[in-house]
């Protein structure tokens, strides 16, 4: 078996790479795929916290690369989804601790055992980025509907092309339909117009993402969250299914009242 190696990247920080990696990985695992999430953000690891697996870390990616443990020992099985595994980053090292070549070897070893190997890339375009994309076959670009994030995403698309990673897929994160409606935010068309790559999902801004991150429970496991639903649909599209995009219409006043009362979910 040779799985897909996919890097989740954005250029800009804080647009939701880690959240997207965790949720898309989790959604794919819920669908029965064997998924390895690799935290490539060495020195600033977060993926373990988002997944609520921080207290299970004994060995990390650096230990595995240095041969201080076997790769299997460093992989942490998720506590909820049996086919989801995390390879945590080291916290007390930095990006220079690994070489792109080592990353290539590691991802290809993982790809033998997993359907999907998803790499959570650090922000920036330096060493950490180069490490993270070294072994990737495909890329998922995360952006928010802001000019600065789209500009950085465009730069990333160019850098990926130069590295031979063609046709990355786009996720627009944290869209606020009310602001788009007022003309205060870039809309989906504007973003696609600039980046000219395939859109694989639009995730609405959702407070549930913040609470789920703090609790260490991916939002895709929350059936009521619209962001969770958007991530589940992204996973379906990655699997090649043709699913409609989540409606970005603002729910009506009465629906919101019902939701507030905990009924209309």
């Amino acid at each position: 078996m040779s799985g897909k190696v996919m890097v989740v990247t954005s250029g800009k920080g804080g647009v939701g790479k880690t959240t997207a990696a965790a949720n898309i990985g989790c959604a794919l695992a819920v669908r029965g795929k064997k998924v390895a999430l690799v935290d490539a953000d060495i020195g600033l690891r977060n993926l373990d916290i988002v997944l609520g697996l921080e207290n299970r870390i004994v060995f990390d990616i650096i230990h595995a690369m240095e041969g201080r443990c076997r790769l299997r020992q460093a992989l942490i099985r998720d506590k909820r989804v049996q086919t989801l595994f995390l390879l945590p980053a080291a916290q007390s090292k930095d990006k220079d601790a690994i070489q792109p070549e080592q990353m290539k070897g590691l991802t290809s070893e993982l790809a033998d055992d997993f359907d999907y190997v998803i790499l959570d890339c650090p922000a920036g375009i330096e060493r950490g980025f180069k490490n993270a994309i070294a072994g990737a076959g495909t890329a998922l670009i995360i952006t928010t509907p802001e000019v600065s994030a789209v500009r950085d995403a465009d730069r990333i698309v160019g850098l990926l092309e130069a590295e031979g990673i063609e046709k990355p897929k786009l996720v627009i994160n944290r869209l606020r339909p009310d602001m788009v409606k007022r003309g205060d935010m870039l809309d989906i068309e504007d973003v696609i117009d600039i980046l000219a790559i395939d859109l694989v999902g639009v995730v609405p801004d959702d407070e549930a993402v913040i609470t789920s991150t703090n609790r260490g429970e991916p939002v895709v496991l929350n059936g009521a969250s619209r962001a969770g639903e958007a991530f589940r649909r992204i996973a379906a599209r990655i699997e090649g299914e043709d699913v409609p995009f989540l409606s970005m219409e603002i729910p009506s006043f009465w629906v919101r009242i019902k939701r507030f009362l905990g009924a209309g979910k």
Binding site: G52, E54, N55, R56, I57, V58, K79
Partner: peptide, 15 residues
């Protein structure tokens, strides 16, 4: 603690 180790034993708090 996030995790506690004594010699080769490892413990973590319940989730």
């Amino acid at each position: 603690p996030t995790q506690l180790r004594i010699a080769d034993l490892i413990a973590r708090p319940p989730d």
